[in-house]
Design a protein around this nucleic acid. Sequence first.
RNA 1: GCCGACGUGGUCUAACGGGCAAAGCCACUGGUCUUAGAAACCAGUUAUUGCGAGUUCGAAUCUCGCCGUCGGUACCA
Length: 887
Amino acid sequence: MEEKYFAEAIEEKWQKIWAEKGTFHAEINDSKPKFYALEMLPYPSGNLHMGHVRNYSIGDALAWYKRLKGFNVMHPIGWDSFGQPAEQAAIKRGVNPRDWTESNIAHMNGQLQRLGLSYDWRRQMFAHRPDYYKFDQWFFLKMYEMGLAYKKATQVNWCDTCQTTLSNEQASGGICWRCGNPTTKKEIEQWFLRITQYADQLLDDMAEIEAGWAEKVLKRQRDWIGRSTGAFVEFKVQHSDEKIRVFTTRIDTIYGANCIVVAAEHPFIEANSDKLSSEVLAKIAEIKAEKAKATDHEAEVEKDGIDTGFKAINPFSGEEIPIWVANYVLIEYGTGAVMSVPAHDERDFEFAKKYDLPIRQVISEPHMEHAHHTMQVLALEQAFSDYGVLVHSDYWNGKTSEVAKKEMTEWAEKHRFGEAATTYRLRDWGISRQRFWGAPIPIVYCEKCGTVPVKYENLPVELPQDMITEGTGTSPLDNDKDFVNTTCPNCGEPAKRETDTMDTFVDSCWYYFRYIDNQNSEMPFDPKIAEYWTPVDQYIGGDDHAVMHLIYTRFWSKVMRDIGLVKFNEPVKRLLTQGMVIGETFFDEIPNPDDADGKGKRVYFPPNQVSVKRDEKGRIISAENAEGKQLKSAIERMSKSKGNGVDPDEMVEIYGADAARMFVLFAAPAENELVWKEEGVEGTKRFLQRVWRFVWRWKSVISGQWSTSMVHEFSAEAKKLRRKTHQTIQRIQDNFESLQFNTPVAALMELSNAIHEFKVEPETANESDIYAIREAVESLVLMLAPFAPHTAEELYSQLVGNENGILANGGQFPEFSAELAKEDEIEIPVQINGKLRSKVLASPEADNKTLETLALADSKVKEYTDGKEIVKVIVVPKRLVNIVVKG
RNA sequence: GCCGACGUGGUCUAACGGGCAAAGCCACUGGUCUUAGAAACCAGUUAUUGCGAGUUCGAAUCUCGCCGUCGGUACCA
């Protein structure tokens, strides 16, 4: 140990020792409880960014804590290494995507190693390697057999920038998840996975994980799945055999229907286009054209429509109502047709107002007298969409919405024009991608036998070594005749391979099951091994994948359960969603005449080209660029274009991995945004140096073996230090259990401060002082390991006198003694009428009576109570006394 | 527009399911040391907990309204 703290030297040293000793290797061990700590795997873009550092620092802290708590910890990492950037790099720079990917992985692997993360590196998986994607294909074949994978031609989301199709999840809001450009629709044949078959399970099994998942993530999944229960009702078309089927959740409002509204793409329109007037046809064309346009998602689209001239019959009332076509009815949802009930639906209300259609109230607030109903209708200025009591509904009058819904649905069923129904917003998962860099879909097309799955023994269907052409909207693999031409697995005749590859979200569905058995060449993993290690105990990552990765992987697990690979419903018990890393940005705002709101276009300047003036409190008062132009500042997500990114390598070089990691954990709660502040890292580095110097100064006195039985008498100061030590242990343990990583760092700093305040010199310290110091320092060092493992290891080696490492030495998270943590005497605030007036000293065990007596006897209290009537005295044990007086 | 979360010193943040508002890092001020600076050490400044009301003996904490910030979402019948 050197007197000065050289981060780089000790970090290299311990990383070498860990690697040599296999310190973090995880093997099945039935004598210990297991803990599976998992972080979202990175895409090998070439460089680690601070978001990764944050994600992995959190996971590593937890993994260390659990190890110190006696758990057998699985903590792996791998690579989400299929995907578009590799392909784009290949096109742009003429490199092989495989080489590009492998070299990025090698580089990022080095960056991760340099951070000293406690992974079992042997367990890595690489999505782009055949030994992994073989099992993507294996799963595909299983799903094909189960009827969960099927092909159909349909309108799919298309991103013109990325030149590929996207799943609904990836094109949420009409925006490509990858490039942010608007998507269009394209008719294309593609493979789907029947995730909708699991829609109910995906919703209902949420009950199992509610306790461990952020509510906002579950809510987004719930909304995405969008289950709604109601009924289908058929409306006969007047003078025709045709029927229009609508979906409604409010069959109880059917007497208020003023028309049927269908989407422009509805089959009824297409079937009857010859009977429609040119005016109607023009309007339909207009609506379709509007829809095809890239929409501005801020703006609300005005309702637009036209009466088709057709009539429909309300099956309940027999009333004849017009059939309209309008832009606000979506062909994708329900049946593409609705019954319009303006009195009880906001959208229908708006539509009826615009076209002056009748608005008839059929639901009344429960407490309304019958006589008032008519008035209410006249006064209706907005839709009443709550449940209530039926009015103007013949036989059903007086029934509540709840009852009417049930009975009217039954009545419709009985008379064969309707039935109870549940619809979902969730669609099947389209997984075909017209890209090269993904897992080939293991299907062969034979002229004689049709669509034939590849045989299991012939997996993997390997990608060609070289990429043939760039993406042009068709699959690059089409151009590789050696790949395309094959023989039929069934009849042996010449046949052609499927040339689309799988969505890369398939890879990340099950990667964490591969870690536990990554050498298996027969199966994705051995179910017996999975039984020990899975489900995942704690998953950590960003919440941007809430409706993509996190919903797909839940679906995949349920399929794996149905195959018999696992026995549980939910693969992840607890999910922690960490916030973004953000930084200060400086920009000049150039007015944009096109924007009515006056929002200008921002031109960013990197912080190192900006001179900032701050006032004496540290607030920014001015910022100017090299030319002396005044700039505005903000705090925004780190990105290259904004110039506010921080290079992890640079941070590690300057401050060391320990200080950088510790700062990331300390600066904010894990779920919050984290503002990167260089000065903050210096602070954590200073803290580590303080601890280091202290151990250096004391090591000759406190190192080596020590016995707990020697000492009995402690000075008041030593007792105080011991109390702080044990209180800190308790606090940090509680913090870890509730996934707080910022507060334990503060607690460690407090303990360190307490050690410094213990004014004893090593040369003159007596046995009990040394004991108290040793206890405090050893606890501090052990609890430091999750945050600054290299520093903790080095300091620990000084305490125990060997370099085997904390875990090999049996180092454990210290146990606290409630007895020692307890205060001898506590200050009890005394309030008079709720205002703090005095404080009294009492033992923590003092009962209410004692506290009351002490408080009333206090001289300052007497000043306030003398001559006044004491109304009552409230005593909160260990907390306070409040005396209520009058007069 | 709708839904949700959050507003605590200059800043980031603590404070268990009402009970002394500040424990920690940073920033700032002064000092010791030093040729000077940095580092280190010591000492210190900084609040009507966004605003307004309610419940309560007592509210940062619970309830309601408003303001603001940030996310999510878009006619899902």
